[in-house]
């Protein structure tokens, strides 16, 4: 099990999920310079949205047929919550000291967790998420579960769509302008409030896709799942260079692979035996973040702050 191709595949799958969530942090930060710390919970509610859709379908519906509808349901719930957060929690605080939206975000996180815990049927425990049955695939020496194929297809597809949107469409161009200079974007006739909503919505949609991937991989969703995934995705966004969408995905994959390799191989380094295994994987992720912040504070693909003025 502990061979290199397998570890790389695991890292890639995990990293693709981090990357999808990281897009939400990076897009919102790029446009309103706000870290939406409730984004992990926007991811989490997407998982419950997808599960609810599945439970509403007639029993015995095959998962492959259910998946597209579940995806729509997950995305819809995430987008709804993300857009509502922008409209009712963050927008009134625009221009307030930066601490205010940060505290609001933390409050919102707790509220969303507790709402699922209290009101979602069985939400105080992990809820079982449907799984693909059938044998796994052998890809380049690694064993890949059926459910994991989803994120391996969805992540690149989402990135290509986003890249096209940002660079080729009128709204995407307006989004770049808003990120670079919001007041001047208004002078061009761009409704920057709408662009901000759009950034939240796209980020939330990607989180919804990631939530389905998470459910398919782990076989469950639970009210706390947004915390650690959100933190890792935020790390990925910073790692890749916050504000840069390709950086977010790159950061996610680098983080996922690093975590996976550290878990598998650190214990083989003489003197490091006690640091191996899954218990330490989160530590290695954050060690990586600290190293990057020390050596390349702008992140892998980020520009130095002076260039962004």
């Amino acid at each position: 099990m502990n061979e290199l191709p397998q570890q790389l595949a695991n890292g890639l799958i995990l990293g693709a999920m981090y990357g999808l969530i990281a897009i939400g942090y990076t897009m919102v930060y790029g446009i309103v310079q706000l870290i939406n710390f409730a984004h992990g919970e926007i991811f989490m509610v997407g998982g419950f949205g997808a599960l609810s859709v599945y439970l509403a379908l007639p029993t015995g519906t095959s998962l492959i047929l259910a998946l597209p509808i579940m995806l729509i349901g997950g995305i819809a719930v995430s987008v709804l919550v993300g857009v509502a957060a922008e409209r009712f929690a963050y927008r009134p605080l625009r221009g307030a000291p930066r601490l205010a939206p940060l505290i609001t975000a933390i409050g919102l996180s707790i509220a969303l967790q507790q709402a699922i815990w209290k009101w979602y049927p069985g939400g105080n425990k992990a809820r079982v998420f449907p799984q693909f049955k059938g044998h796994s695939f052998d890809i380049l020496g690694a064993t890949v579960q059926r459910g994991d194929l989803f994120v391996l297809i969805a992540a690149p597809a989402c990135m290509i769509a986003l890249g096209f949107f940002v660079s080729k469409t009128r709204s995407g161009r307006a989004m770049q302008a808003t990120a670079q200079d919001r007041d001047t974007a208004k002078l061009m006739g761009i409704n920057t409030d709408r662009i901000i909503v759009l950034a939240f919505a796209i980020g939330a949609a990607f989180a919804g896709v990631a939530a389905v991937a998470y459910g398919l991989r782990t076989g469950e969703v639970q009210f706390r799942m947004g915390f650690i995934m959100g933190l890792k995705a935020f790390t990925a966004a910073v790692l890749g260079g916050i504000g840069n969408i390709y950086g977010a995905m790159l950061g996610g994959v680098v983080l996922g692979v690093a975590e996976s390799l550290a878990t598998a191989y650190i214990e083989e380094i003489p003197g490091m035996q006690q640091f191996g295994g899954g218990a330490w994987k989160d530590v290695w992720a954050f060690v990586l973040l600290i190293l990057v912040l020390l050596l390349r504070p702008q992140g892998l693909l980020g520009e130095r702050v002076a260039d962004r003025a």
Binding site: D183, T184, A185, K186, L187, G189, N191, T192, D307
Partner: peptide, 24 residues
Amino acid sequence: VPAHKIVERGLAHSPEGRRLFPRL
């Protein structure tokens, strides 16, 4: 009238310090 609706009326503003979109 919000700022983004004013250009529509025919008022254009080249701001102090030029304020281009530097990465475009």
